[in-house]
Amino acid sequence: MVLADLGRKITNALRSLSNATVINEEVLNSMLGEICRALIESDVNIMLVKKLRENVRASLDLDDMAAGLNKRRMIQSVVFRELVKLVDPGVKAWQPVKGKSNIIMFVGLQGSGKTTTCTKLAYYYQKKGWKSCLTCADTFRAGAFDQLKQNATKARIPFYGSYTEMDPVVIAAEGVEKFRQEGFEIIIVDTSGRHKQEDSLFEEMLQVSNAVSPDNIVFVMDASIGQACESQARAFKDKVDVGAVIITKLDGHAKGGGALSAVAATKSPIVFIGTGEHIDDFEPFKTQPFISKLLGMGDIEGLIDR
């Protein structure tokens, strides 16, 4: 499971507190070191990790604290609080409304999995009885329309796109308008991959967004991304109103810690995860249950209550 390794390491580190006979600076630092190490190895942004460490240190004064169990409990809950802050942006995930046209625009770096995930999401809603469709506003990548078309056809999802129109803004507007008039409920707009270093690509993204006024913008990210994630995610958020994150390729070996950086940078929750190349390799993601499971809250509570 996602980040499971990270969860285990953190739980182990926290448990080391219970095993120590006295809790002094050394024990605390070694535990924090272990946790930070686990986070860094999972690709969480190093600045965020340093911040977490500082925050924990700042809210703990060992000399001032009561002895024994209380001390352990306090440390554990401070650490836990900081970890939760990393995964939980504190905002509720946007939900589509039945019976109306919900427009969802996908954005992200090149090759992150947008086109594949668009179909997965449309299919997910279609299976639940929503009227779903896809619009291909990627006129840049070779074969992009064929890709979406083949995926959509296989899943029997209506789609819109063009081999001749070169302006993604025009296609996006046309597609969304057409499907809106036809009463579609989930209208997904796929866009080209782009990166913050190329202004014109970011400008284009803004124009597509202005043209279709999406109800939600999803930032799609690859689970294997490293330290560049934070600044890219932040740049996307600065340009358009990103409201959700989807992490792809979690079927691989990557721990997906970049997702935590993306959550922090976009202040948006993770809403789905991709776990394979097939259309149903896709799972909804809920922050709260994830935290309890992943960060081993069950375990931690167990520790605290003892």
Binding site: A142, G143, A144, Q147, K154, E277
Partner: peptide, 16 residues
């Protein structure tokens, strides 16, 4: 021969 659009992607490049 697996990913949707993979062949068309290369065909486009070859044609260009």
């Amino acid at each position: 021969t697996f990913r949707a659009g993979a062949v068309e992607q290369l065909r486009t490049h070859a044609r260009r």
